[in-house]
Amino acid sequence: MTTSPPKLYWKTFVALAVLLAITWSVSYVDLGSFNLIFALGIAVAKAILIMLFFMHIRGSSRLLHFVAAAGVLWLLILLSLVLGDYMTR
């Protein structure tokens, strides 16, 4: 596994900082329920960035990709089916 140059890590950090600034400032604008979707979207983007570059998922085996996705997928199963109950009460 070739070790990537420090510049790549710094670029990732800058991207994360920019995303943080965006989500923070957008929260001052009232977009109604769109606020939540936007905030979650940016959070997911930041999480993927961290996983790809800082946690070296990029270029690692397909198995690790699946394990990384499995945790989130199972959480979505829990969230969706429970909300399925609360929304249809």
């Binding site: 989500t23 923070w24 929260s27 009232d30 930041k46």
Partner: peptide, 24 residues
């Protein structure tokens, strides 16, 4: 390192959900 990045990811989700829930 993996553990530390995970802890960071959790906070990345906590910040918008708790602090920015609904416009200022």
């Amino acid at each position: 390192g993996l553990y530390w990045h995970f802890v960071d990811i959790v906070w990345v989700f906590l910040f918008p959900l708790l602090y920015l829930a609904g416009h200022r």
